[in-house]
């Protein structure tokens, strides 16, 4: 599904990723943990193609294609989804318009027919219900007046409607209370299937109690320094990153 090979990237001329390699197969859930400043969010932005994140070396292959050669919107159309740590507010554009535009733009790029207004409403309603987001909020401007938890639920609603092959979720658990964490975790687990993969980027082991990953990687100073199974999260929580680096 995703092969990252020796990826190097910098922001404002400062190297952040320094030879990161990671392979994710279809059907797997991976988690990346690491201290502040290790490059976790940079990795997610580099994969999504955000301006200002410059790749200086290495390669990323997504479903057999060169991901880095594609524009950000083409990456999304190819099946990559980035759940933002800080979802953006867009005044004057409703969630429904935003999401319908996104879905149909992706379908157009893949040569698929548009989804009709009625079919889209069914999809959006089902996703909002599953993620516990009142449907009335979908009619409001994108993320405007949403609490931190509602914004994260909204990201999950978008993911469910767009059905990406790979979801990269950047600290989707931050800002969630326990109940919201459960709902969001259920939403992520519902995406698990032999055709889909998830990359969780998180600070805390808490999320990983609900969404049990197949593999956990520790990112420090721009590289994966350690990989292990689901039990690694508890070891990290108990001993910290520093012990691992030593």
């Amino acid at each position: 599904m995703l092969i990252i090979d020796n990826l190097c990237a910098e922001v404002d001329g400062k190297p952040i990723l320094k030879g990161l390699s990671l392979t994710i197969n279809a059907g797997e859930v991976h988690a990346i943990m690491g201290p502040n400043g290790a490059g976790k969010s940079t990795l997610s932005y580099v994969l999504a193609g955000r301006d200002g994140y410059e790749v200086t070396g290495g390669s990323v292959t997504f479903r057999g294609e060169d991901l880095l050669a594609k524009a950000p919107n083409e990456r999304a159309a190819a099946g990559l989804f980035l759940g933002l740590q800080y979802p953006v507010e867009i005044p004057g554009v409703s969630n429904l318009l935003f999401l319908r535009t996104a879905l149909n733009a992706q379908r157009a790029q893949r040569g698929e027919p548009e989804v009709s207004g009625a079919d889209f409403m069914k999809l959006a309603k089902a996703a909002a219900e599953k993620l516990g987001l009142p449907f009335d909020m979908m009619k409001r401007a994108v993320n405007q007046g949403f609490s931190g938890g509602e914004k994260k639920r909204n990201e999950m609603v978008q993911m469910h409607v767009l059905q990406p092959f790979l979801a990269v979720l950047d600290e989707t658990d931050s800002g969630l209370d326990i109940d919201a964490l459960r709902v969001v975790s259920d939403g992520i687990n519902a995406m698990r299937s032999p055709d889909h993969a998830v990359l969780l980027i998180t600070h805390y082991q808490r999320l990983l109690d609900y969404v049990v990953p197949d593999h956990i990687h520790v990112l420090m100073d721009g590289r994966i320094v350690h990989s292990g199974g689901a039990d690694l999260a508890h070891k990290l929580e108990a001993e910290g990153y520093a012990a691992l680096a030593a």
Binding site: A71, N73, A76, Q158
Partner: peptide
Amino acid sequence: AMFYFASRGVPAAQARALL
């Protein structure tokens, strides 16, 4: 906002028009 649209698959020209 432009990046948010792009990350959801919307081409820049279409995002610019909507915004």
